[in-house]
Amino acid sequence: MSPAPHTQLLVGGRIYSASAPDATAMAVTDGTIVWVGQDRPGRALHPDAEIVDLHGAFVAPGFVDTHVHTTSHGLALTGLDLTDAVDREDALRRVRAHADAHDDAVIWGHGWDETRWPDPTPPTTADLDAAAPARLVYLGRIDAHSAAASSALRAAAEPLDELDGFDPQQP
């Protein structure tokens, strides 16, 4: 027979929660946050919980990033790896060499990280157009949350200029 679940109710604190911005209490059952809200409802909902008084302390629940960029991972296995590019020019040299050596329909580069470069300027559309003229080029950043694209690729995906955040040069 498994042991009964153990719940702690943390009260009297300042709990960070996007869903309950005025939270002062948090219930934790066997190490998992199960409820966030105000002290009084917490006590009513969890009458048998062990009470832990926070005395006004701030609590930020642990953050777990469970999303996966499956497509980006697959492309990383076959595309142009830029994770160890030492600067923008190095990344662009690699794009140029790849374009010269391959006739891929799309040049998929991945992994550049301008925050590690001496000049943290990311590659622009003009940079990609110069490195691989008239080619479809997509360079995904290390976090897969932004990318640089060539003019040819942008034209193939029009009408981009109608989208929020569109910039004709920047990732």
Rank of each mutant, 00 (worst) to 15 (best):
V11T: 15
G12W: 04
G12L: 06
R14Y: 05
R14I: 05
Y16G: 15
Y16W: 15
S17L: 11
S17Y: 09
A18C: 04
S19I: 08
A20I: 01
D22E: 10
D22T: 12
A23Q: 04
T24F: 03
T24Y: 04
A25R: 01
M26G: 07
V28Q: 11
V28M: 03
V28G: 04
T29H: 06
T29P: 02
D30K: 01
D30Y: 01
G31K: 02
G31T: 09
T32N: 09
V34W: 00
W35M: 11
G37F: 08
G37W: 11
G37E: 01
Q38K: 12
Q38Y: 01
D39N: 04
P41D: 02
P41S: 01
G42N: 08
A44K: 03
L45H: 06
P47Q: 14
P47H: 00
P47R: 07
D48Y: 05
A49Q: 11
A49Y: 06
E50P: 02
V52K: 07
D53E: 11
L54P: 05
G56E: 12
G56N: 14
G56A: 13
A57N: 15
V59Y: 02
V59K: 03
A60I: 09
A60W: 04
A60R: 07
P61M: 03
G62E: 02
V64M: 06
D65W: 04
D65E: 05
T66N: 12
H69M: 13
H69A: 10
T70W: 15
T70P: 07
T71I: 15
T71M: 10
H73A: 14
G74F: 09
A76K: 13
L77W: 00
L77K: 14
L77M: 08
T78H: 14
T78L: 09
T78G: 03
G79C: 04
L80K: 08
D81K: 00
D81S: 03
L82E: 12
T83S: 10
T83G: 12
T83H: 13
D84W: 09
A85K: 12
A85C: 08
V86S: 14
V86Y: 09
V86C: 10
D87E: 15
E89W: 10
D90H: 12
A91P: 10
A91H: 12
R93V: 02
R93L: 15
R94T: 14
R94C: 08
H98C: 05
A99V: 07
D100Y: 01
D100C: 10
D100N: 13
H102V: 10
D103I: 05
D104V: 09
D104M: 04
A105V: 05
V106M: 00
W108C: 00
W108M: 09
W108L: 03
G109A: 13
H110E: 12
E114T: 01
E114A: 15
T115M: 11
T115W: 08
R116L: 12
P120Q: 11
P120T: 10
P123K: 08
P123L: 02
T125K: 03
T125G: 02
T125S: 01
A126W: 06
A126S: 07
A126I: 06
A126E: 13
A126P: 00
D127R: 07
D127I: 09
D127L: 03
L128Q: 10
D129V: 06
D129C: 05
A130C: 00
A130P: 05
A130V: 12
A131Q: 11
A131W: 09
A131C: 08
A132L: 03
